[in-house]
Simulated scan of single mutants.
Amino acid sequence: MIIAVDAMGGDHGASAVCPGVIEACNRNSDLEIALIGDKTVIEPYLDKADGSVRSRIHVVHAEEVVDPNESPAKAIRCKKHSSMRIAMEMVRSGEAKGCVSSGSTGAIVAGGVLVVGRLKGIDRPGLGILLPTKKPVFLLDAGATVRCKPLNLVQFSLMGSVYMKDVEKLSSSPRVCLLSNGSEEIKGDDVIVAARERLRASDDLNFGGYVEANRVPMGDADVVVCDGFSGNVMLKSFEGLIKFCRGLVKETIQESWLAKAGALLLYPSMKRLGARVDYQRYGGSALMGVNGAVIKAHGRSKAPAIANAIGVAYSFVERNALERIREDIAQELEKVAAEETLC
């Protein structure tokens, strides 16, 4: 299996991506990587790989890099020799089964639509990400489609359910809920209400109605569906709260020798807790609704997060999630066409 990886994206560029690629290849013996970027920058980092791993990493030279401050669509259209664009073209041509980048979110979404292409029947793509909650919760959309129609939310629900069943291997039928400002049916705007009625009529989903933001960390839903604006705000709130709590714990420990002594006893448990809420553990966001496994890694990703993002792409392909999404969307289109005929 070949996964194309943008070596130049993110805050750390090749210094994080290359070690992450090596780690991912060590984990999966059948994984090959097309590592795309400036060859002179990349190759020194690969000297640390042993022979069996190095032989599965193929460097593809790219002359350009997509800058996060550029217009996303313009950068994808104009910078045809950028590492991100080449990675996506490899997915479109079938040379690679998927691609990973920690570059600009906007450019990745634009590239997913303009280069890789949307799946037939998908109106808009959505970024799906696992949240560090009591149990894995898949949030969709986390920032790709800022303003949504009811159709978009229905399609996000179908894709999120497939992801949790086939990629995360959830043992039971995923409980899908719409993010709203209350659990009562009188809550929600016109878009949310219309999506709720369509989802309630679906036989393919375990639809659980509304979920409030304060219940998401408790695992009241397996899949939380919302527009990209709300989802991105929720995601950033999670990240900020986790960072705040870590800082607060450290400050409290420093207040007395007794707290310091207690912290030593609690250190193993606190270390495990820190790992549970570390964004690097979850790797990256899957751009759902495009014709390939396109994974957006966090911009701050270091080697472990890059390796995990590649693992997300690997699992997405290995478990045939794309074909399952195609099937579910095709069935939904057939139902909509039948309803329109009856009307």
Rank of each mutant, 00 (worst) to 15 (best):
V66M: 01
P132D: 15
I86V: 06
L151G: 08
K97M: 09
M218H: 06
G103C: 11
C226H: 07
V193L: 13
G228P: 11
R124L: 11
F316A: 04
K97P: 02
A16D: 09
Y282S: 00
Y163W: 08
F156T: 02
R272F: 00
D204E: 14
V216H: 05
F156P: 03
G160N: 13
F207I: 08
V294E: 06
T341Q: 08
S173A: 12
Q155D: 10
H58I: 09
V154H: 08
T133N: 06
D141T: 05
V113N: 13
T145S: 11
I129N: 03
N26D: 07
G10R: 03
M288K: 08
A73G: 12
M84N: 09
K335R: 13
I36F: 02
K335W: 01
A201H: 01
N206V: 14
P44L: 15
A96I: 11
S93G: 10
V193I: 14
K296Y: 09
D50W: 14
R300V: 06
I22Y: 14
V113I: 14
M270A: 12
T105P: 00
G37T: 03
G208D: 07
N308A: 08
M159D: 13
D30S: 13
I325P: 02
I242L: 07
M270Y: 06
R56S: 07
R198A: 15
R118A: 05
S102T: 11
G143E: 11
M164F: 03
A293C: 06
G283N: 11
V193Q: 14
V317M: 15
C343H: 11
M288P: 00
V277I: 09
I108P: 00
T133A: 15
D38F: 10
M218L: 15
G117E: 13
E334V: 01
L131S: 02
P268M: 10
N214Q: 15
T341G: 13
R124E: 03
G128H: 12
A259Q: 10
R175S: 12
S180W: 04
L264H: 08
S315A: 12
A142D: 09
L153M: 07
S180A: 06
S183C: 10
V294L: 09
K97A: 14
K74L: 11
E63S: 14
H298D: 10
S29W: 08
M218I: 03
L287T: 13
D227W: 03
I22S: 00
A194H: 10
L46M: 08
G209F: 07
E339R: 12
V146E: 01
M234S: 01
P150M: 10
D123L: 14
G209M: 01
A49G: 00
R77F: 05
A87C: 13
A330R: 12
A144H: 03
A307P: 04
S285I: 14
D47G: 00
K149A: 14
N28W: 05
A110K: 04
V5N: 07
S102K: 03
R276I: 00
V277S: 10
R319A: 02
L139V: 04
S180G: 03
L140T: 01
S301A: 15
G94W: 10
I295A: 06
A307M: 09
M218E: 15
T252L: 05
L31Y: 02
T252W: 00
